[in-house]
Design a protein around this nucleic acid. Structure first.
Lengths: 199, 199
DNA sequence: CTCCTAAAAACGAACGTTCGTTCTCTTGGG
DNA sequence: CCCAAGAGAACGAACGTTCGTTTTTAGGAG
């Protein structure tokens, strides 16, 4: 059975995905043709179609890797010991955002995935589940901050988690669409909000 | 000079834009063909091309109306007299969001525009300017809240404006992608955050 | 009012291109 | 020597747009 090594197969797959990512980033999912991806990968039509049976499979694979990429970080922030103060956790989340907003980052692609999720129910399901999971991590974070006295006694951790989580895509969008503010300024704004009324 | 009335021309234009909006909402900008729009509008190829010389003009017209639609509301919130408490202003912004997240709302389309802005520099420029303007309204809001003693003495209104504004797209995204939380829960989370540490 | 006319508005067949995908053929490693 | 891996010509469908033709319109003449 003259097959090539599994590493070779995995490498080819990655080669195609990397090429697709560059194309999708540059031209969007639907303004990228299969020919574009094929040329970018330096392969032939047949080779690419051996690994991905349709363009939609390629889009789905990229989309899932893009939106799922932050799961590890958010889980880590929620599980940190001792519990992270809310602003510190947010700082670390936004630091990650800063590494991923440039031309090689995944976040410009993530924005495109949000749009794509509105036409592709399967993708919508995946994105919905993933982001609900992200929010759950922030809820955990809020619950632990609550236990540490960082929140009012009657605060609902799930509600706080949703508000806290919202600050992440809210920052992503401003960075990518308007180019500002920088992380330090944004965090100062969050801190001022959290500090409450003038004493 | 046998032309048709200006109202007729405007109505035709609106008829085409409405059809395009429905199509774009359903299939996305680039999975909608001109034939789709033409059929949805109940017109002919030539008629549509008389009003919009290319598909991109149609996309741009829709995109601009979609992202510009909230300018009036945000300006109003910033100018309210007496100054709105921050949470009340946010409540009104999110109430607007709730009216625009359904199938007929503009926000699902706005998400697609965010993606489109990454491939179309002219659109990116427009979206960037518009959202910077939205943020400025929130900065005004923050400045007036600051003057009213609602924020720490050393708070930077521009930074607070950015953080506050972020809570809007953060809510939009969660509503559209995950279906939750509802506005009341979300606002409770924001309130708990703003209330600061347990007394 | 009715008719005529010139231009605007609307129509829709047709064009060349590009799309995603299929399929046959070649190649080279086990 | 065999069969998976890769190559690339070819396909029908669909794309955005053009353009010659037909219909509708407003206003002036009778």
């Amino acid at each position: 059975m003259p097959r090539v090594s599994d590493e070779h197969l995995a490498a080819r797959r990655r080669q195609i995905l990397d090429a697709a990512r560059r194309c999708f980033r540059r031209d969007g999912f639907h303004n990228t043709s299969m020919q574009d991806v094929i040329k970018e990968a330096g392969l032939s039509v047949g080779a690419v179609y051996r690994y991905f049976p349709s363009k939609n499979d390629l889009i789905t694979a990229i989309a899932q890797s893009v939106v799922g990429g932050a799961e590890g970080l958010f889980a880590e922030l929620a599980a940190a010991d001792p519990p992270l103060p809310l602003v510190d956790a947010l700082d670390r989340a936004l630091t990650y955002v800063d590494t991923q907003t440039g031309p090689d980052g995944v976040l410009p692609l993530a924005i495109q995935v949000w749009g794509e999720a509105q036409r592709d129910p399967a993708l919508a399901e995946f994105v919905g589940r993933t982001y609900a999971s992200f929010r759950n991590h922030f809820t955990t974070l809020a619950r632990r901050a609550h236990a540490a006295g960082e929140l009012p006694a009657d605060a609902d951790p799930a509600a706080v988690g949703a508000a806290l989580f919202a600050l992440v895509p809210g920052y992503v969008l401003q960075r990518i669409l308007t180019g500002s503010p920088d992380r330090a300024t944004y965090l100062a704004g969050v801190r001022a909000l959290l500090a409450g009324p003038r004493p």
